[in-house]
Simulated assay, not measured.
Amino acid sequence: MNIKKLKKMSSIAALKYITKDSILGIGTGSTVITFIKQLKKVSNFIRGVVSSSKISSFYLKKYNIKIFDSREIDNIEIYIDGTDEINDNMQMIKGGGGALTGEKILAGMSKTFVCIADFTKKVSILGKNNPVPIEIISISYSFVKKKIIELGGYPVLRKNFFTDYNNIIIDVYNLFLKDPVKIEKKINNIPGVVTVGIFSIRKADVALISHKNKIEEIKK
């Protein structure tokens, strides 16, 4: 199984969703880096992009793709991002790379959210294979940790890591999400939480899932 090839397949498939003179939202992660490499081939077709993270901005600059400040943009027509896990309802866990806050903002700004992934990211229940990342203000660590344990999760501080906004991340294990919307709302309401990497309220509109010999296109 060639994961690199699968990432390229879904990245190429996403290009058809790009419209002329549009401004794209760009997520973060290894699949997105693969997409950016494909995007450079059609960069003259678009006005530019809004980036979700410093690392994505680094690659966009590397390929001379124009970056807009999100504060200058009211909405985004298409947002393209990868995922850590995605279920049959197009709900996701994201934030393994630590850019969940920027990703959630751009997803919320977008008219259409296109998720690009390989078939290994599909799960029946979110949280089965990956922890749920939560970006928090550092002073709230003990309090948030206690509240997450009360929800049945096992929180672990992501060591030596700070987000683009100088916050910390806890990765929550054993938080199987049979009702992702309910848990997303509960965690977001804990004081000190910036955002949680559950994308169930603003979920994907389109998922492009690469398999060995085909692209599975799912629309909600």
Results as ranks from 00 to 15, higher is better:
3 I>R: 14
4 K>L: 14
4 K>Y: 07
5 K>L: 15
6 L>N: 03
6 L>S: 10
7 K>G: 05
7 K>Y: 14
9 M>T: 04
10 S>D: 05
12 I>L: 15
13 A>S: 15
13 A>G: 08
15 L>F: 11
15 L>N: 09
19 T>Y: 12
19 T>V: 14
20 K>A: 02
20 K>E: 15
21 D>G: 09
25 G>A: 08
28 T>P: 04
29 G>H: 09
30 S>F: 12
30 S>R: 15
31 T>K: 09
36 I>Y: 02
39 L>F: 02
39 L>H: 02
40 K>Q: 15
40 K>L: 05
43 S>H: 08
44 N>P: 00
44 N>L: 13
45 F>S: 05
45 F>M: 12
46 I>P: 06
46 I>L: 09
48 G>Y: 03
48 G>F: 07
52 S>W: 06
53 S>W: 08
54 K>R: 13
54 K>A: 07
55 I>A: 07
55 I>S: 13
58 F>M: 13
58 F>Q: 13
60 L>E: 06
60 L>F: 02
60 L>D: 07
60 L>V: 03
61 K>H: 14
67 I>T: 10
68 F>T: 02
70 S>W: 03
70 S>T: 02
70 S>M: 11
71 R>H: 12
75 N>P: 01
77 E>G: 05
78 I>T: 10
78 I>G: 00
78 I>L: 10
81 D>T: 11
82 G>N: 02
83 T>F: 04
83 T>R: 07
87 N>E: 06
88 D>V: 00
92 M>G: 06
96 G>S: 07
105 I>A: 04
105 I>L: 12
108 G>S: 09
108 G>E: 02
110 S>M: 08
112 T>E: 09
114 V>L: 01
115 C>I: 01
118 D>G: 09
118 D>V: 09
119 F>C: 13
120 T>Q: 11
121 K>R: 13
122 K>Q: 12
124 S>L: 12
128 K>Q: 14
130 N>C: 13
132 V>F: 07
133 P>G: 08
134 I>V: 15
138 S>K: 14
142 S>E: 13
145 K>T: 14
146 K>F: 08
149 I>H: 12
150 E>V: 06
152 G>Y: 10
155 P>K: 04
155 P>C: 04
158 R>Q: 01
159 K>R: 14
162 F>T: 13
166 N>C: 01
168 I>S: 02
168 I>R: 03
172 V>T: 04
173 Y>E: 14
178 K>C: 00
179 D>Y: 14
179 D>W: 01
179 D>K: 15
179 D>S: 13
180 P>I: 07
182 K>V: 00
184 E>N: 10
184 E>V: 11
185 K>P: 01
185 K>C: 00
185 K>D: 08
186 K>G: 00
187 I>Q: 03
187 I>Y: 04
192 G>R: 08
192 G>M: 02
192 G>S: 03
193 V>F: 01
193 V>S: 04
194 V>T: 00
194 V>C: 03
194 V>Y: 01
196 V>F: 02
196 V>I: 12
197 G>N: 04
198 I>F: 05
202 R>C: 05
203 K>M: 06
203 K>H: 11
203 K>Y: 08
206 V>L: 01
208 L>W: 07
208 L>Y: 08
208 L>S: 05
211 H>R: 14
214 K>Y: 13
214 K>L: 12
215 I>R: 03
215 I>V: 07
215 I>F: 07
216 E>G: 08
217 E>T: 14
218 I>K: 15
219 K>N: 14
220 K>D: 08
